[in-house]
């Protein structure tokens, strides 16, 4: 009853959650640390220290603005956590691919920054509605971005985009650098997308030419969903 599909998803999902939450926790800590230091600087000024350049009142006001900016930044990270938490609410819903793409890009922003790669995510020009498990697709897209980020070399720029394709969507993860041969195996190891969505990966251009982008074809309705909701209970070990 769907266990074959869900076991890898559960494992990959837990690893993904741990990875992303650890990263967002670091980002939130950074925000708190900055607020802590700016508040300390305000205390110094109130306590009689003479700041350079501006008078104390102007300086305190400027520092308050910097604190507000950090609070806003922290709230953004909190929204990412909230969206991530709710991405597992339902595994059988209609959703917009653009929202999933945005969330994947937001969650990948920290790994991209640490890898010193410029990550640019483009939403599809018009809504692309898919039916299935948004979390499984989020996991797949995040995994693909991770593989391409790891392969970044001298150019260090990765773009993610998507467009309607047939009844579903076609997603592109493009690196400004050529992707090394090992990418094929790393992409193949991302089981969730294949098992739950029946996604098909293609490298472009095809080896032996060095590929620069991964193309992901996503059906409009997740076939794994069809299989697991089949009242006849017919098992399909390949998830297709």
């Amino acid at each position: 009853m769907g266990h074959d599909h869900r076991r890898p998803l559960q494992r990959e999902g837990v690893l993904f959650f741990g990875d992303v939450i650890a990263g967002l926790s670091h980002e939130l800590s950074n925000v708190f640390n900055i607020i802590n230091e700016i508040a300390g600087l305000q205390e110094d000024i109130v306590g009689g220290a003479h700041p350079k350049g501006a008078d104390a009142a102007d300086r305190l006001s400027e520092l308050a603005g910097r604190i507000k900016a950090q609070v806003e930044r922290g709230e953004t990270f909190n929204q990412f956590l909230h969206s991530l938490a709710h991405s597992v609410d339902d595994d059988d819903i209609a959703f917009d691919l653009g929202d999933t793409l945005d969330l994947a890009g937001s969650l990948a922003a920290r790994p991209a920054r640490l890898a010193r790669v410029e990550l640019v995510v483009h939403r599809p020009e018009s809504p692309v509605t898919l039916v299935g498990d948004p979390f499984a697709l989020l996991l797949t897209i995040f995994g693909l971005i991770g593989v391409v980020l790891d392969a970044a070399d001298s150019e260090r720029r990765v773009e993610v985009s998507a467009a309607p394709h047939g009844n579903g969507a076609r997603l592109f993860v493009t690196s400004a650098d050529p992707l090394p041969p090992g990418v094929v195996d790393e992409v193949a190891a991302l089981e969730t997308g294949r098992l739950t969505w029946g996604v098909v990966h293609t490298l472009d251009p095809q080896p032996p030419e060095a590929p620069r982008r991964i193309i992901l074809d996503v059906p409009a309705v997740a076939p794994a969903l069809k299989a697991t909701t089949d009242e006849e209970g017919q098992e399909d070990p390949d998830g297709n």
Binding site: N30, N33, I34, E37, I38, G40, L41, P51, K52, Q70
Partner: peptide, 11 residues
């Protein structure tokens, strides 16, 4: 974190 660095250095 540039904001952290600038605040600490000033302090």
């Amino acid at each position: 974190e540039e904001e952290l660095v600038s605040a600490v250095v000033e302090r």
